[in-house]
């Protein structure tokens, strides 16, 4: 290959790898998985890759085998919400590239197909999340009336969150509003004397908003020496927890409840 062809090859490979890495980062994959998958694909394409994973960017540098030519580009994370379906499909794609020896163009088509896959039906997610949070209340020892209250509180709170996310409203504001609505409904056990465990109904009504996966991912990145991403994910999770608490405190203040 002459220099022009090498440049074109490195450019198309780099663009694909940066898009692939940003898709994985955006769907909440751990940094170690992004590194492993990118390394696997780069070996198949016959290039060397240096990658910098930052909280809001991925910087990819692709070298030819002789380390004489390189191409680099940066990309922002695609998506932003945890999406395990996309994570799984992207991991499968990395192996398909190896096993079927897919070209960069073929892999790019596959990548676009994966990025356009539909999400789970929002009504099913709403019902499953409400049932999950109601189960949570039961796990904490709440009676079945409290479980019913938490189911209703989650149904309304999570529905509001879905609407606000569809309208592209900031996630922090969305979390405050959802927690506020869920806690107001969750306090109905106190207000109407419905349950024997109203404190559990109120306490668990907002737990569906706890950003559990970012907390776990932060820990995982910490142990694989990706400190920047670990700290970033941890701070993001803490901020969402603070927003959740602000919404809860607002709801409790409105309902004239004591915090402790």
């Amino acid at each position: 290959m002459d220099d022009g062809e090498i440049h074109d090859y490195l450019k198309s490979t780099c663009l694909f790898l940066s898009k692939y890495a940003s898709a994985l980062l955006g769907c909440g994959a751990t940094c170690i998985r992004i590194e492993k998958n990118i390394g696997r694909i780069a070996d198949t394409f016959g290039v060397h890759v240096d990658m910098t994973l930052l909280p809001a960017h991925v910087i990819v540098v692709v070298w030819d085998c002789d380390h004489t030519h390189s191409y680099n580009c940066s990309a922002k994370p695609i998506g932003g919400m945890t999406d395990f379906c996309r994570n799984i499909e992207l991991s499968k794609l990395s192996w398909r590239i190896v096993e079927k020896n897919l070209s960069c163009d073929e892999a790019a088509i596959e990548l676009d197909r994966i990025l356009s896959l539909p999400q789970l039906n929002k009504w099913i997610v709403l019902l499953l999340t409400s049932a999950a949070n109601a189960s949570f209340c039961r796990l904490f020892g709440g009676d079945f009336k409290a479980v019913g209250i938490v189911f209703c509180a989650t149904l309304l709170g999570f529905f509001l969150k879905q609407i606000m996310i569809e309208d592209k409203i900031d996630l922090r504001i969305t979390t405050i509003a959802s927690a506020f609505l869920a806690s107001v409904v969750g306090a109905s056990g106190y207000l109407f004397g419905i349950s024997n465990t109203p404190e559990l109904a109120l306490g668990t009504s907002v737990l569906f908003l706890i950003p559990g996966i970012p907390y776990i991912n932060a820990g995982s990145d910490l142990f694989t020496n990706h400190y920047l991403c670990a700290v970033s994910r941890f701070i993001q999770a803490v901020i969402l927890t603070i927003c959740l608490t602000l919404g809860l405190c607002g709801g409790m203040f409105l309902m004239q409840m004591k915090f402790f």
Partner: peptide, 24 residues
């Protein structure tokens, strides 16, 4: 038994928020 049942439901519900495929 109650703990097993309700924690399984909780896991399925919270997994659905993260778009976990039904097969998983």
């Amino acid at each position: 038994i109650q703990d097993i049942f309700f924690s399984a439901i909780a896991a399925i519900g919270f997994a659905s928020i993260s778009n976990t495929p039904f097969s998983a």
